Amino acid sequence: MEELGTTIKQIRQAKGLTQKEVYSGIVSRSFATRLENGDHDVTATKLFEILERLGVSADEFRFIQNDYRPDDGEILRSQVMLAYDQQNFPQLSHLAQRYGQSKNPAERRIATIAAVLLTAYSHRHATLTSDMDHLWQQIMSTKSWTLQEIRMGPILMALMGFKDAAVSETIRKMHQSCDRYVSELTDPFHVMDLRLSFDLVALQVLLSHRDYAQARAFKTELMTGHLEQLTSEGNLTLQLCLCIWTWFFGDSSTADQQASLLRQLKVARIDPGIRAILSSWQQQAKRYHLKLADKK
C-alpha cells in the first residue's frame, strides 16, 4: 500500500490540479511538497479537507491507495456474502475451511462468518465453536454499533439460534444504531438496506423460535424508519419480509400472489436465495395454520 502523501499526489496529478488548488488554506506549499514526498504526515482533519478538494471520499482514497482494489478482507467478505445470497453452501464450506486456520485475523473472522451462515442455514446440526462465541461476545459487548457491526447484523441474528439472548433487545440495538446514519434527506451508507437485511433474518429467527406474538408485532418494526431511502434491493428485501409475514398473519392468497411476483423477478445475485426462502416459509406457514386449525 502506498504512502498517504504519494496517493494524494497521484490523485492530484491525475486530475490535473496544482498544489495551490489542493492545499491553499490547508497547509503551506513547503509542507505539501514534503507530504507528497512521504516526508510528512497530516492530521485527520486536514486530510479530510484535502480529500474534499480532490473530490475523493475516504473509502475511495483507501481503494486507490491499495492500487485500485479492495483489501483482501473485503474481497473475502464479498465472496462469503455472495455465496450466502445464492444459497451456495459448498462455496461457504470451502471458504470456511480454507481461511479458518489463517494467521490473518481478518481472514479468520470472515471464515467464522462463513461457518455461522453455513451452520445456521444448511440444516445441519448446529454447534457453536469457540470462534463463533468470540465473534458473538465481540459484537454484543460493543455498546453502540458502527457500520462494521451493523453490516454484521444478519450474522449476529444467525447466532441467536445458539445463544440465550433476547431477540427484541438485539433488534432494538440494531435499529437505534442504524438511526444515527440515516435521515429523510440522505442515507450515504445505504444503512436502510442493511437494516432490512437484518430484519429479514430477525423475522425468520422469531418464526423459527415459534415466538409468533413478537413475529406478528414485528410488522410495525418493518414499516418504521426511513423507507424512502431504500434502494431497489432494499425494497425487494422488504417485500420478501412482508410476504413471509402475510403467509403467517395475513391473507394467504395475497401472500401467494406476492410470492409469485417475487419469483418472477430476475436478480442474478440473490435469485436462488429468494426462491429458497419463499419455498421454505410457504410450507412452514401452511403447517402453522394446520396446527391452529387442529387446536380449534
Rank of each mutant, 00 (worst) to 15 (best):
153 G>T: 06
180 R>V: 07
162 F>G: 11
286 K>Y: 15
208 S>I: 09
108 R>V: 05
146 T>R: 04
110 I>P: 01
173 K>H: 15
209 H>D: 14
50 I>L: 13
155 I>M: 12
234 G>N: 02
98 R>H: 07
35 L>Y: 05
97 Q>C: 11
45 T>K: 02
188 P>T: 00
189 F>W: 04
186 T>V: 14
229 Q>D: 02
295 K>V: 14
72 D>N: 14
45 T>V: 09
114 A>K: 05
237 T>Y: 08
46 K>M: 13
260 S>W: 02
207 L>F: 03
11 I>D: 00
183 S>Y: 13
159 L>R: 01
34 R>N: 15
54 L>E: 02
291 K>Q: 07
192 M>I: 02
39 D>N: 05
148 Q>R: 04
251 D>R: 13
273 G>R: 00
139 I>G: 15
170 T>Y: 03
138 Q>E: 15
13 Q>S: 13
218 F>L: 08
81 M>E: 01
229 Q>V: 12
154 P>Q: 07
257 Q>L: 09
60 E>Y: 03
280 S>R: 12
192 M>Y: 08
112 T>C: 00
31 F>P: 08
243 C>K: 00
255 A>Q: 08
200 L>F: 14
224 T>R: 11
206 L>E: 00
142 T>Y: 06
242 L>Q: 03
260 S>Q: 06
122 S>M: 06
274 I>D: 12
175 H>P: 03
99 Y>S: 03
146 T>V: 06
104 N>S: 07
42 V>G: 04
212 Y>E: 00
131 D>F: 05
47 L>P: 11
295 K>R: 08
113 I>Q: 06
62 R>H: 14
275 R>I: 10
205 V>L: 08
94 H>A: 07
187 D>R: 09
130 S>C: 06
52 E>H: 05
285 A>W: 13
265 L>V: 03
